[in-house]
Design a protein around this nucleic acid. Structure first.
Lengths: 220, 220
DNA sequence: CTTGAGCCATACGCCCGCGTATGGTTACAT
DNA sequence: ATGTAACCATACGCGGGCGTATGGCTCAAG
C-alpha cells in the first residue's frame, strides 16, 4: 500500500491535511459554521465525493482542523521565543511577536467564538491554558511568587487578547507604525517589570514619587 | 390606524421588543446564527406566523435586536458611572463594574464574533468606539495628553476585553472571590495612575499630583 | 350583530448542507 | 491485460431554516 506520495508535486490529488488547512482558512474568515463540506469542496475545486473519502463526516474534519491548529499553535510559540534565556527578554519577545501578527490571533478569535461546540471548547481550553502556563512560568522566573505570577500572566494575556479583539472590531482604533510601537512600549513597560522587586508593595521605605494608591477595591 | 396599545399588561401577545430581546438572549448563548426565526418562535411558544407579522424578514429582527443592544449598552454605561466627578474614581468605577458582570460582556463577544455581517459590524464598531472615546476622555481628565490618553485607554479597554475572553474560554483561569479582588486591584493600580505625573517621563518640572479635572463629557 | 384590524397557525415551495450509494477514472502491481 | 486501491463525480433522500399564502381566532368599534 505505499504511503501516498503527497509531495509538493503538481498532483491535483488532495490529502486530509489539505482539507484541514482549508477548513482553518474559512474558519478564520467566517467562523465555525463556515466550515461546511460542500462549500469547502467547491473552494477546493472538487465535490463531496472527495471529502467523504478522506473523512467519515464533518466532525472528523473539525477535529483534524483543530488538531492542526493546536499543533501549529504550540510549535509557533516555541519557535517564537527560541532559546531566550533571560525571562524578561523572553516575555518581551513573545509579547511583541504575538502583537505583531494578526492572522494567528484572528483565527483564535474565530475558533474561540464557537465555544458552545464541546469539541472546540476542549481545544481552545488546552491552547489557552498552555499559553497562560507558559506566561506564568516566565513571571515566576522574574521572581514573582506563584500567586503574583498568575495575576501578572493573566493580566498580560488578557491585554494581548483584548488587543486582538480591538484590531478585529475597530481596526481604526489600533494604530500602526510608530504610534503602535509607542503603544507596545507602554504595555511592555507596564506589564513586564524588570524584577518582582519593582512592583511588590514595599510597605516600608519606597521609591520617591510613588503614590501609595489608596484602597480602591472594596469587597461586595 | 391607531397605534398598537402594547402596554405592559398581562397580554400574552408578543411585541417586536419581545422578539428582539429573545434574539439577544439566544445570540448570547449560540451566536448570530442561533438567531433563527423558527427556533425563536418555538422558544416563544408561537410559530413563524407571529414573527412575520412583526417583522418583514430576519434581517429586520437582527437590526431591532442590535438597536436594542446598542441602546441598553450605552444606557448601562452611563448608569454605571453615575455622576462621579473625580476622573480617577470614575475609571475605577467603570472598570470594576465592567469586570464584575459577565452577561453583558458575553453578549458583546457573541455579537462581535459575527463581524463578517456588515450590519453587525456597524453596530459593534459604534459601541466599541463610544466606549473607547469615553475612556480616552477619562484619561485626559487625569492629565494625559491626547496621545497618551489614547494609549492608556486602549490599554485598559484591551485588558477588560481580554478578561472577558479568558472568562469565557478558560473560566478556571479566572479566579473568583478574594483572589479576583486582588487581581482587580493589581489591574486598577497598574492601569489607572492617579495622575499623569506618575507615568509621564518628567521632562520639565510639573505640578505634584494635581488633577486638572476638565469636563469629560462633551456633546457633539 | 357585523366589521375590521391585530395576532397567530397551518401549509406549501424553495434553498442548501449533510450523509450515502454507486459508478467512473487513474495509477500501480502482478 | 487485468485486478486493485486511491481518488473523485453524480445522484438521491433527508432535515431544517426562510419566506409566502391563506385562513382562523379575538376583541373593540360601530
Amino acid at each position: 500500500m505505499k504511503a501516498a506520495a503527497n509531495g509538493s508535486d503538481a498532483k491535483p490529488n488532495l490529502t486530509a491535511e489539505d482539507w484541514a488547512r482549508a477548513a482553518l482558512e474559512v474558519m478564520a474568515a467566517g467562523g465555525l459554521d463556515a466550515v461546511a463540506v460542500e462549500p469547502l469542496a467547491r473552494r477546493l475545486g472538487v465535490t463531496k465525493g472527495s471529502f467523504y473519502w478522506h473523512f467519515p463526516n464533518r466532525e472528523a474534519l473539525l477535529r483534524a482542523a483543530l488538531e492542526r491548529w493546536e499543533r501549529r499553535e504550540t510549535e509557533e510559540v516555541l519557535a517564537r521565543v527560541g532559546d531566550e534565556p533571560d525571562p524578561y527578554a523572553r516575555i518581551v519577545k513573545v509579547f511583541k511577536e504575538a502583537n505583531a501578527g494578526y492572522r494567528s490571533g484572528r483565527l483564535y478569535l474565530a475558533i474561540a467564538a464557537a465555544e458552545d461546540n464541546p469539541l472546540v471548547r476542549e481545544f481552545v481550553q488546552r491552547v489557552s491554558e498552555r499559553r497562560m502556563q507558559y506566561l506564568v512560568q516566565c513571571y515566576e522566573a522574574l521572581g514573582f511568587d506563584a500567586t503574583r505570577a498568575q495575576h501578572w500572566a493573566r493580566f498580560a494575556y488578557a491585554t494581548f487578547m483584548g488587543n486582538l479583539q480591538i484590531r478585529r472590531d475597530t481596526p481604526d482604533l489600533m494604530p500602526g507604525g510608530a504610534p503602535f510601537n509607542e503603544y507596545l512600549k507602554l504595555m511592555i513597560k507596564t506589564l513586564i517589570p524588570r524584577s518582582a522587586a519593582d512592583v511588590t508593595p514595599v510597605v516600608e521605605e519606597n521609591h520617591p514619587h510613588v503614590v501609595p494608591l489608596r484602597r480602591a477595591t472594596d469587597g461586595t
